[in-house]
Design a protein around this nucleic acid. Sequence first.
DNA 1: TTTCTTCTAGAAAACGATTTCGATTTCTTT
DNA 2: AAAGAAATCGAAATCGTTTTCTAGAAGAAA
Lengths: 368, 368
Amino acid sequence: MIAQQLCYNRSETFRGEQAQHKSMARRHNIDGRPTIAQIARIAGVSVPTVSKVLNGRADVSLPTREKVERIIEEYGFVRNRAARALRKGKTGLVDLLLPRLDDEYYLPILEGVAQVLREAGLRLVLTATDYKSEEEVRWITTVTDHSTDGILVVLPSERAIEQLERSGLPFVLIHNQGGLQAMAPSVRITSWEGGFVATTYLLRLGHQRIAYIGKTSPARDAIERIAGYRAALDAAGLPLRPELECDGDFTEASGYQATLRLLELPEPPTAIFAGNDRQAAGVYRALHERGLAVPEQMSVVGFDNLPYTEIMNPPLTTIHAPRLELGRTAATMLLRLINGEQLEMPRVVLPTHLVERQSCCPPRQHQG
Amino acid sequence: MIAQQLCYNRSETFRGEQAQHKSMARRHNIDGRPTIAQIARIAGVSVPTVSKVLNGRADVSLPTREKVERIIEEYGFVRNRAARALRKGKTGLVDLLLPRLDDEYYLPILEGVAQVLREAGLRLVLTATDYKSEEEVRWITTVTDHSTDGILVVLPSERAIEQLERSGLPFVLIHNQGGLQAMAPSVRITSWEGGFVATTYLLRLGHQRIAYIGKTSPARDAIERIAGYRAALDAAGLPLRPELECDGDFTEASGYQATLRLLELPEPPTAIFAGNDRQAAGVYRALHERGLAVPEQMSVVGFDNLPYTEIMNPPLTTIHAPRLELGRTAATMLLRLINGEQLEMPRVVLPTHLVERQSCCPPRQHQG
DNA sequence: TTTCTTCTAGAAAACGATTTCGATTTCTTT
DNA sequence: AAAGAAATCGAAATCGTTTTCTAGAAGAAA
């Protein structure tokens, strides 16, 4: 083990290949990377001709084209993006602003954006704002410098949206919290419907006392979820019981706390709609600690359909939030805007749906 | 719910603020975004003077500076990055190549890189290669176009490294698979030691029959883990039993399969070192299906310390892979290289450590 | 052969910043 | 008051590409 360690830590100064490469370039009489001008000189043509070859223009004869292409290949020429961007006014870059990077919730969104961008030959600049709107505004200012052709913002603050609208840069909002008045292009999910469906599902199983966790968050998606929950109860002719609507800031810990409180109620619920999957994990932990079995003694429904819900024990029934599509849709819309096209559907809402697994069953008879 | 839907789907054509903004700009007699030249004209100074103000140069008098700053503020001027990049030869961008985006394993690496880059005022360009080395090479070619000041590659292929070395661009490798001969700057973790520590921990608890899952993967980290496992058994004077070294490609499914096979052995193991946390999740599932309790009837150790291991039931004892530090260290090294400095420690290895939770206990007496 | 198209190719002007360096102006110093 | 030093500012070149726009060559039609 010690030998291993020594081997690992062997300190060998790394001298970049830069030096090596430069000398190789010198042999070809080129300082550093070749430019279009160098290539043109070597090929015995003019600079615009090389540019035309590079851009696949028609007004270049076949022999000339082939000669230039050969030289380009031989010298491994790649054109300088900065110069190109300067001239064309497009950078080929798109910015994505995320509240956090260490939250796996956003991962599929990122993935979706990356997919679409890659198909379009654009590259993705990633920025985390840490939920601070100052950071957000600061970055949007930075971004306004034409370093990027457009911008996607997840969970944008009001200020960020204003800044964005003022900037004139194409942008699309993901999970926009904003009021209904905002006409900015955005993509969201049917959180209300999700809450409604989750609750209705539990009602159909026969549950009468259903708790909701996650009352604390002021986020729009959270508000809609609880609204959906209430609407479902109402539609079923059941009264709303304040004691069953628990605080919760969408963390595992708050799911745990809320569950403990629910279990101390004179009449505990027979089912819990956890608001999101992280809180559902906390619910599981509390139930396990108290020796209650899921779903026999307590049905649980989550929201989001994070990857780990599949390997929870028992696998969690949850509402699927189409996060990959969120990213793909937003990116596709942004591409249109960048292209100067108009959006006939500027505000898109993607449907959620129930993923039935094994955390729910009808309530036991002696209850209620 | 129908009303809700209608509201969501209301189709309102979005006409970009671009048009609006342009007219506002026209009022100020500016076409589109102001340039340094515009600002200079308005402020009644020369272009270089504005540039000097922007760059905080000393040779500008206070009144001039203040006047220019006022105009800049008033017109919301931000300089064009492309022009700046062209002139300075630096783009302020760093590339990060990841094998996949939908794998939460890489998330903390990404986070670490982003942190360091943000502190340095650089921005992060993210690219996924989908484990395809052609993609990797293609992107590295793309990246050579000076669009980026440096590049970080996670799990680089041999070809990618060659390409990188040829490019002359500063780069740092993360989780380099390569042979020991490669002198390229890289950051890795002590996988061998992790395997050794995990196995030793089980041995100390009294286990004699310890299985390992994950023999299939050719990745260097996988090879080191099993090597560490064998070394620990060897150090304890125990024989290596081939039937306890299971295939496994580091997916949940393969952990599940391997466990089922292990349980069918005439003498099943009393502990399983799962190779990684995903496989450990599969182990849990198989054990649960067979009605075996963790840790009473089977101890389990994972590797990586993914977030969900904490909420597994019981919480998983695992080897922590310092992924955030992996990202931070690599980014810090790259910054040095970009700065033209030399690395006195070009090949860094970060330590792993055991995170003791509740998935292990001494074996039951009647076993072995 | 002449004239009119159609192809090719290149000269020159952008794109918007930074940098160099020389020309003023202002301030010290004697 | 004159000379030298220091501070301030701007003209022009530059980064590497793309985009006119024009000139000449080649081919077609008369």
